[in-house]
């Protein structure tokens, strides 16, 4: 029983074909709404958390405790004049924000969300190779950043794009290697070891306990991929004004902004699923979804705290850190995972 069947159950009077087609559409809309609401909540949470940590009040004008502030901001950004730079490359400039945004939304479709009381399983799309899907989709987002950087014909934007490519390339490999360790361990227990769902359901202990090195590497790589401080050199405001999004205004800028917060949320959910048990927990057959969200939000708060307390790393040191430290560490992690799986039979 999952949400698709649940919707189909409501629409079953339309017949099998039309019913399922409608159910898929409604499911996609639900996903879009869910992700948008979550992202708005995330940005609200970030602003409120940042304000309180910095001994300020934070947004408190629109709505109760400023909870509608983000909607007001979005409306404001939509109403703003869209300024196009004169010498832009038209198509890449205009397409780039949408690539970032829809790349992000798409990735959410493949996450297993666990159960929530009467709705049953909330997972949108089932796939036996969802890990590969998600990482393939994640690789789309940097393309949007590069297109934005090159398309807007601005030196700051160009440098920002180059930086974020260097960062993404150097952290992609350790990230994949640490995931590979998990897939390896899961393959001992399930035939569909590339499916996130079966990785989570068949685990005995959370993988983060078995391989803390992998958790560490993945966490750092996730923050780097989401371009959060200390790895936010792509849009480092004190050096490159705003990096690849320098020339963007209005709604297109908002899409980049959402992409920034969305990727940290996606990364946190991924860590929660892969390393700290995802929707497993007490009463997980009833409230697995809530477990996932709670774990994800705790991770998000941790990365917010890192953002707020860390200066920015210089780009050459960052690339060094990626290739010279994280990569060897993730290889060690891989070997350890092999020993755990084959030698000890965990």
């Amino acid at each position: 029983m999952n949400i698709l069947h649940w919707i189909y159950g409501v629409l079953s009077f339309l017949g099998h074909d039309i019913g399922y087609a409608l159910a898929y559409i409604i499911e996609s809309i639900i996903l879009l709404i869910f992700v948008s609401v979550m992202l708005i909540f995330m940005i609200y949470l970030f602003r409120k958390y940042m304000a309180r940590v910095q001994q300020r009040i934070g947004p408190n004008r629109v709505g109760k405790f400023g909870s509608l502030q983000l909607i007001a901001d979005a409306l404001k950004l939509m109403g703003k004049e869209i300024i196009f730079p004169k010498e832009r490359d038209d198509l890449p400039y205009k397409v780039a924000p949408y690539i970032v945004f829809f790349g992000l939304i798409l990735a959410f479709a493949f996450l297993p969300y666990g159960n929530l009381s009467i709705f049953g399983n909330l997972t949108i799309t089932y796939s036996d190779v969802s890990i590969i899907f998600i990482f393939a989709i994640l690789a789309i987002m940097p393309i949007g950043e590069v297109l934005a950087g090159i398309g807007s014909h601005n030196k700051y934007a160009l440098m920002g794009a180059l930086r974020s490519v260097a960062k993404d390339v150097s952290f992609e490999v350790p990230m994949m290697l640490s995931v590979l360790a998990i897939v390896m361990m899961a393959s001992a227990r399930t035939p569909t070891s590339l499916s996130l769902e079966s990785i989570v359901t068949t685990e005995i202990l959370p993988y983060g306990i078995l391989e803390p090195i992998g958790l560490f590497v993945f966490f750092i790589a996730m923050i780097a991929r989401a371009s959060y401080a200390p790895f936010d050199m792509g849009e480092s405001d004190s050096e490159l004004v705003s990096g690849y999004s320098t020339e963007y205004t209005g709604m297109r800028f908002a899409l980049f902004y959402i992409g920034l917060f969305g990727s940290i949320f996606l990364g946190s959910l991924l860590i929660a699923l892969l390393y700290i048990g995802g929707f497993n927990g007490p009463f997980s057959s009833q409230i697995g979804f809530i477990w996932l969200m709670v774990k994800g939000l705790i991770l998000v708060l941790i990365s917010f705290t890192i953002w707020l307390s860390m200066p920015r790393i210089r780009i050459d040191r960052l690339v060094n850190a990626g290739w010279k430290y994280l990569l060897p560490i993730s290889f060690i992690n891989l070997v350890l995972a092999g020993v755990l799986t084959l030698g000890l039979g965990w």
């Binding site: 304000a51 309180r52 940590v53 001994q55 300020r56 009040i57 941790i302 890192i306 707020l308 307390s309």
Partner: peptide, 19 residues
């Protein structure tokens, strides 16, 4: 870095200085 994070996060429970 960890001690810095804890120090920053502990300000969450202090009173805001702005009004």
């Amino acid at each position: 870095i960890l001690s810095g994070m804890i120090s920053v996060a502990s300000h969450l429970f202090r009173k805001p200085v702005t009004v």
